[in-house]
C-alpha cells in the first residue's frame, strides 16, 4: 500500500493506493490548519482503505511548491512515517498532481498551465505538455506575479487556484481542478515507480527528494549598526 500526502494547497489530505487504484482519499479544505487536519485525514484514509501504517510499503509526499508553513507539515509527516516503518519516502511536485487530474478529467488535451496560490500576489506555476494521454512537465516549477509570466504562458489554459485569483490567467474550464488531490499525487508516484524510475537518476524526474521546493529565500535582513537613540 502506498500512502500519499499533500499539504501544498488549501486542500489538506491523504490517500491510500493499492497499485494504481485509489482505495481511499480524505481531504479537508482549510488553508490555515494543515497541522491540525493532516493526521486525522491520514487516520481516516487508512481506516477507509482497511489498512494500518504497518501495511504501508512507500510514502509519496507533495513537496510543493506551496506556502512553506503548511507544506512542511506533509513532508515531516512523510519523513517520520518512512523512518518509523523503514519504507521509502518519495517527493512529488504537487503541481504534477493537479496536472494529472486535469488530463484525466479531460479538462485539457494540449499544452496547459498549472498555477496555484503563492500568496503575496504571486502564483506557483509550471507548464505541461500532454503526451500519450499523460501530462509531462515542460517548464517550471517557478514563482512569479501572474502578470509577469510570459505572454505565451499566460495564454495557456490554466488549472489550479491561480486562474481564479488573477485575471491575467485563463481558466481551462469550469471543471478545471483547483486544489491538489492526494490520490492523483499517489497515482503519479505509482506510475513513476512502476516504470522503474530510480529517484535522483533521471534529470527532471518525477520522483524527487522529500524536501520542500521552496523557490523563495527566507525573509530576513542582516541588521545594520544600532540606531542612534536620542
Amino acid at each position: 500500500m502506498l500512502l500519499a500526502l499533500d499539504t501544498a494547497t488549501g486542500s489538506i489530505g491523504a490517500a491510500v493506493l493499492d497499485g494504481d487504484q485509489v482505495l481511499s482519499e480524505v481531504t479537508f479544505q482549510d488553508s490555515r490548519r494543515h497541522g491540525e487536519l493532516l493526521a486525522p485525514a491520514m487516520e481516516q484514509a487508512l481506516t477507509a482503505a482497511g489498512g494500518t501504517v504497518a501495511d504501508l510499503t512507500a510514502v509519496a509526499v507533495g513537496v510543493g511548491p506551496g506556502p512553506f508553513t503548511g507544506l512542511r507539515v506533509g513532508i515531516v509527516t512523510g519523513l517520520v512515517l518512512g523512518e518509523l516503518r523503514g519504507i521509502p519516502v518519495h517527493g512529488i511536485c504537487s503541481l504534477d498532481a493537479l496536472a494529472e487530474q486535469a488530463v484525466r478529467d479531460g479538462v485539457v488535451d494540449g499544452p496547459f498551465l498549472v498555477a496555484t496560490d503563492a500568496r503575496r500576489k504571486e502564483v506557483y506555476w509550471a507548464e505541461y505538455a500532454v503526451e500519450q494521454g499523460r501530462p509531462r512537465r515542460a517548464s517550471g516549477p517557478g514563482v512569479a506575479h501572474a502578470v509577469d509570466l510570459p505572454e505565451s504562458t499566460r495564454a495557456l489554459p490554466a488549472v489550479g487556484r491561480g486562474p481564479l485569483l488573477y485575471d491575467a490567467l485563463t481558466r481551462a474550464g469550469v471543471d478545471a481542478p483547483v486544489d491538489v488531490h492526494p490520490g492523483m499525487l499517489g497515482a503519479v508516484a505509482h506510475r513513476a515507480l512502476a516504470a522503474g524510475e530510480v529517484p535522483g537518476e533521471v534529470p527532471d524526474g518525477i520522483l524527487l527528494a522529500p524536501e520542500p521546493l521552496y523557490l523563495r529565500r527566507p525573509d530576513a535582513a542582516v541588521p545594520g549598526p544600532p540606531k542612534v537613540v536620542p
Binding site: H34, G35, T52, V53, F68, T69, V76, V80, R85
Partner: peptide, 20 residues
C-alpha cells in the same frame, strides 16, 4: 514560533499515529 512549532507537532502526530 508558529511555523517552528508546527514541524514538531506534525512529527509527533506522525509518531503517535504510526506507533499506535
Amino acid at each position: 514560533l508558529a511555523g517552528a512549532l508546527l514541524v514538531g507537532v506534525a512529527a509527533a502526530k506522525a509518531l503517535a499515529l504510526g506507533l499506535g
